[in-house]
């Protein structure tokens, strides 16, 4: 977990006007360690991993704050019905899908304000662990937000996959996309609820195949209503 700075690096290149200044830290979600690209962990022993990353126009500190406020997670995470704080580091999560409810408790393992959060489930219908890292993008272009999520495939995974047309890996990717949209624009793009002609059987099947039957998170609209 040590922070690695490449201050002793020997280089023939003495000018890098646009290059990033600090080196990244050695964490599980890290994409770069000591100048080397690190591939995401591979699935094994019943564990599945997904790592995904976005550039968000914003400061690491503010984005960390938005993520850290877990009770707002239903605004941007798919099918999360509610999150209740149960302690300083613990919260209770309820996920509502078309035909079922999943509940679990979650605990924050480590918390570096403005930079990093890790968590894991501590009982319930889901076995998962995750990490999110916020770091300034090179060139002052915003913040790279990288999420690493680990699952044990159980009830959660099968329910997700069969009922929602989203597997849990894709759900992590979509949730980070929603987080970005909410942080950058104040809303999450929405098409559910717009008019259309009769869909027929084929249209309904297609819609499910494109995962359009997954409820689009409300964004800040929920706050207004």
């Amino acid at each position: 977990m040590a922070e690695i700075l490449r201050t002793d690096a020997r280089t023939a290149l003495h000018e890098r006007p646009g290059a990033e200044q600090s080196e990244s830290r050695t964490l599980g979600a890290n994409v770069v360690e000591d100048g080397r690209y690190m591939a995401p962990p591979t699935d094994e022993d019943g564990k599945q991993w997904v790592r995904t990353s976005v550039l968000i126009k914003g400061e690491p500190r503010d984005l960390y704050g938005l993520w850290h406020n877990v009770e707002d997670a239903p605004l941007w995470q798919e099918q999360i019905a509610s999150v209740t704080r149960t302690g300083e580091k613990t919260s209770h999560w309820t996920m509502q899908s078309a035909t079922g409810t999943l509940e679990w408790d979650s605990e924050i393992m480590s918390d570096e304000p403005g930079h990093r959060i890790t968590w894991r489930s501590i009982g319930g219908d889901s076995e998962n662990a995750g990490e999110v890292v916020f770091e300034a993008a090179p060139g002052g272009r915003g913040t790279y937000v990288t999420v690493l999520q680990e699952f044990r495939m159980g009830k959660l995974a099968s329910t997700f996959e069969t009922l929602t047309g989203r597997n849990p890996k894709q759900a992590v990717i979509e949730n980070l996309r929603h987080f970005k949209a909410l942080a950058e624009t104040g809303e999450i793009p929405r098409t559910h609820g717009q008019p259309h002609g009769p869909r027929g059987a084929a249209g309904t099947v297609k819609s499910a195949a494109y995962a359009e039957n997954v409820a689009q998170p409300p964004g800040l609209e929920r706050m207004a209503s």
Partner: peptide, 25 residues
């Protein structure tokens, strides 16, 4: 276009990051 993302900032409006709910497709 959302007007707020990196692409909109660059004037690459049709490459906007935040307006396609089915981006995964």
């Amino acid at each position: 276009a959302c007007g707020q993302c990196e692409f909109c900032h660059k004037g690459l409006w049709s490459a906007c990051d935040n307006t396609n709910p089915n981006a995964h497709l």
